[in-house]
Simulated assay, not measured.
Amino acid sequence: MPAPKNNFKAALKAGTPQIGCWIAMANTYAAEIAATARFDWLLVDGEHAPNDLRSILDQVRVIEGSGSTPVARLPIGETWMIKQYLDAGVQNLLVPMVESGDQARALVRAVQYPPHGVRGVGSSLARASQFAAIPDYLKTADEQICLLVQVENRLGLSALDDILTSDVDGVFIGPADLAADMGHIGNAGHPDVVEAVLDAITRIVAAGKAAGILTLDPDMQRKCLELGASFVATNIDVTLFANALRGAAEAGLALVPD
């Protein structure tokens, strides 16, 4: 009995566009609501949301029971942390701030068992193997892990071609941090930023890797998909919730005369 098949990874490899949403409420109930929305994938954020491994695992569990695929973003790409996420059964990882090919290759080693990698062998204790109920887990896990790395500054862009020679499954471009690094903080729509992002997407696709992005701009979403981006997040649960509540408050208050 092998490790569970990763349909998200298979879709990316086939170039089938996957539309997703950022999940940053750090709340299982909110994640469960998001899981009813029928996005292809939901990103549980451990970098900028107040999550830890336990809260991420709780959200991953409820998403797994839906038609959406859970992806988890680590706060940082440390080998020990990657090991914990993988043992918890998270098959799809997004690692922020990757700036070199050597860093990307080290991350690839972190998600693979020896002799190809350095992932610690403790699967008999792990949810990933259904607590040793999957007898072939150790031999089949590597091919089902999807490693996505995030390039989000000029240093990362300058190393993009080298990063693309590694065995990462995909590269995600982070427009917000890139805009800040380019001197346009808070303005991911600046023409220079847009040009850099679209150029990166083109290079990633040409290298045969999955290209990804989070953007709330419908025009930018379409452009990235037209270039071949295969995992595109189109919204954020926190933003949707905040905007809906503020709109509801404004409409309600407008019912009362000054």
Score class of each variant (00 low, 15 high):
Q91E: 12
L42C: 12
A206V: 03
G208V: 06
I204E: 07
G77I: 10
G15K: 10
H48A: 13
K5Q: 09
M25A: 14
S166G: 11
L164E: 05
R127G: 07
V60I: 15
S124F: 13
K223A: 15
F131Q: 05
S158Q: 15
V60P: 07
V256M: 10
A11C: 00
I63K: 07
K139I: 02
I173G: 02
L198Q: 14
A128E: 05
D177F: 09
I173M: 06
T202S: 13
L160N: 02
A141G: 13
D181P: 00
P114M: 13
I82G: 00
S166M: 12
L125F: 14
G46L: 06
R109E: 15
W41G: 05
H116M: 11
S100Y: 01
L107R: 08
G46K: 06
I163R: 03
T239V: 15
F231D: 00
N6P: 11
Q150Y: 00
Y113N: 10
T234H: 03
D219Q: 12
I173F: 04
H190T: 10
L253H: 08
V111M: 00
D87G: 05
R109C: 06
G228S: 04
L227D: 02
D169R: 05
E250F: 04
V95K: 01
L164R: 08
E143R: 14
T234D: 04
G208C: 08
I185Q: 06
E32Y: 08
K9E: 00
D177M: 10
I76K: 06
P218L: 05
A31R: 04
P4G: 13
A49V: 11
W22I: 12
G186M: 09
V149E: 01
G174P: 01
A106G: 14
S100M: 02
I204G: 06
L240F: 06
P191M: 07
V90L: 07
G252K: 06
K209E: 01
A188S: 14
A35H: 01
A14G: 08
L255H: 08
A14C: 07
G20Q: 02
A35T: 03
D169Y: 05
P114G: 14
A88H: 02
G186H: 08
L86M: 02
K223H: 09
S166C: 10
E250I: 08
G46W: 07
D58G: 03
M25S: 12
A14H: 04
V205G: 03
V205E: 05
D87K: 00
A133C: 10
G212K: 09
I56R: 05
L227I: 04
H48K: 12
L86W: 01
G122H: 07
I56M: 14
T215M: 00
R38N: 13
P96D: 03
I82N: 01
V151T: 02
T165H: 09
W41M: 12
L216A: 15
A141R: 13
M220E: 06
